[in-house]
């Protein structure tokens, strides 16, 4: 499917944010933003929902807790109970005090790595991936708003006029 894309390049984060606020208030949809660092407050402007990645981390962590506790129950209580230093481990309750450190560590281990892997896959940032930022400077000091013709009722010409009033530095049009 062929689509026309308009990239509005800004030299300042606040200018870009204000431009985004202005165009969205007039019903224009900003398809994406590329910036060298997160522009605070832009997510609700361009209609991004909050990420649920923290919930994923919580689930991984809970999984770690369950695995660690059940693992230690199996190893220490069920499979081969022993008497260490006068502390026989025949019941779980008598031993759970010393299971706390590993339960904690294992929960953190799974939560952190699970979330990191989820993050990389959801972002589609993995080794040997190709970057798709429109201009290389957008990882340095330029802030780019992306508009797609297919996602907007207004024509790209109209949008172009609007962002030009908003202090844009450069405009790039592309076919995709």
């Amino acid at each position: 499917m062929s689509d026309k894309i308009l990239y509005a390049v800004f030299g300042d984060d606040e200018v870009a944010l204000n431009a985004a606020k202005k165009v969205t208030s007039e019903g224009v949809h900003v398809s994406d933003v590329f910036s060298p660092f997160p522009i605070h407050g832009i997510d609700p402007v361009i209609g991004l929902k909050r990420t649920r990645i923290a919930i994923a981390a919580f689930i991984y962590g809970t999984l770690g807790t369950i695995l660690a506790l059940s693992g230690m129950y199996y190893f220490m209580i069920y499979d081969w109970p022993q008497d260490f230093g006068g502390k026989p481990n025949f019941t779980f309750v008598d031993n759970v005090t010393s299971f706390v450190p590993i339960t904690f560590e294992f929960s953190v281990l799974l939560a952190a790595h699970g979330m990191a892997v989820t993050f990389l896959f959801r972002n589609w940032t993995l080794p040997f991936m190709k970057a798709h930022n429109p201009i290389p400077e957008s990882t340095d000091d330029k802030f780019v708003l992306e508009f797609r013709a297919s996602e907007n009722e207004k024509s790209l010409e109209e949008i172009k006029a609007m962002v030009e009033a908003g202090g844009v530095e450069r405009i790039i049009e592309k076919e995709a």
Binding site: V33, A112, A116, L120, N123, A131, H132, N133, S138
Partner: peptide
Amino acid sequence: SFGWSGSAKQWQRFEEVSLVLAGLA
């Protein structure tokens, strides 16, 4: 760089991950 592009959604996730990792660390 894993093909990082710096799009809005990537940054949003990035910030959340940093915060949660800080909370875990």
